[in-house]
């Protein structure tokens, strides 16, 4: 019999996202009040290692789907799997990390199971047997409480908003193998590959971030090579600036962020944008260089511990 509280373990090709462990930790806290243990769901291809890690981080049971059709995350295949498992075992709560995958998966399962999804929660509380999720809305200008009167309650947790438990290498649990639900022919998408590989530290998980803004292009100590027009010289200066930011980030083990002005001006790709229309981050240390702190930028970083 699976537990009332489940946590979905998000990983990329067998490498778990640290925020998955935060979900397991938050799951344990809920289980303390709702009763029972915590069941982790691990799906993929050749991802036994992730399942073992899940035990170490606090899972009592792992529902484990290991199948070639699950090698790439495809929301339709994963959602059908989770929906079927949830229909069979009837959990009260399923927690997901708020990664692109976690959010999409929760969204689809909610449709299958006619229940609600409460994305990007920063706080959880149990009241009368139901989970009350606190979530920022209006780009964090307000806080909303949300409750779901259907089951399971699907909640994605904002990355770094919940403490990650310490792993215990000796901890073991019950591994339950489950089959994939969709066959290849029924999965409507194919992943053809990746054009840019994900090197470097991922912004949302980073404990330290160094960001650059429009001011990066305004280093009076730099003389651009001759023959450049004004725009080229500006971009050249900015790129020199981001080189410095990159070096600092490397030394600090930090991720590189940027303001929208820097992205729009073509200094750095969009993947680095922090803010309302970029990534929402909450590192321990946020170093902003040449950024004025517009409200839309702050919407993405104001909960950092030190700025």
């Amino acid at each position: 019999m699976a537990d009332k509280v489940w946590a979905y373990i998000d990983h990329f090709k067998g490498e778990a996202y640290p925020s998955s462990w935060e979900a397991l930790g938050a799951g344990r806290a809920l289980a303390g009040q709702l009763g029972g243990g915590v069941t982790a769901v691990v799906a993929g291809s050749q991802v036994k290692g992730v399942a073992e890690q899940a035990f170490q981080y606090g899972a009592d049971e792992v529902l484990f789907a290991d199948d070639a059709t699950l090698a790439d995350f495809r929301a339709e295949a994963y959602a059908s799997l989770l929906s079927k498992l949830a229909q069979e075992h009837k959990p009260d709560v399923i927690l997901f990390p708020t990664t692109s995958r976690g959010r999409e998966l929760a969204a689809m399962i909610a449709v299958d199971l006619k229940t609600g999804v409460m994305p990007d929660a920063t706080g959880l509380e149990v009241k009368d047997g139901a989970v009350v999720a606190t979530r920022p809305v209006y780009a964090g200008k307000l806080l909303s409480q949300a409750v779901c009167n259907a089951r399971p309650q699907l909640i994605t947790l904002r990355v770094r908003a919940f403490p990650a438990p310490e792993p215990d290498a000796a901890r073991k649990g019950k591994l339950t193998a489950v089959p994939a639900v969709l066959v290849e022919g029924d999965i409507p998408t194919k992943v053809a590959g990746y054009t840019t590989g994900g090197g470097g530290v991922s912004l949302s998980d980073a404990a330290v971030i160094v960001s650059g803004g429009r001011g990066i292009s305004n280093n009076p100590a730099l003389t651009p090579p001759s023959g450049m027009d004004e725009k080229q010289a500006e971009i050249w200066r900015a790129q020199e600036g981001f080189k410095m930011i990159g070096e600092l980030a490397k030394v600090l083990g930090a991720a590189v962020g940027a303001s929208r002005a820097a992205v729009d001006a073509g200094y750095i790709p969009y993947e680095h944008q922090v803010g309302q229309t970029g990534k929402v981050v909450s590192p321990d240390l946020y170093i902003a260089c040449g950024i004025s702190g517009a409200i839309q930028h702050q919407a993405g970083m104001r909960t950092s511990k030190m700025i």
Partner: peptide, 11 residues
């Protein structure tokens, strides 16, 4: 545009 970079998908 996912966490790992640019993923190419066909449907």
């Amino acid at each position: 545009s996912v966490e790992e970079g640019r993923q190419v998908v066909e449907a």
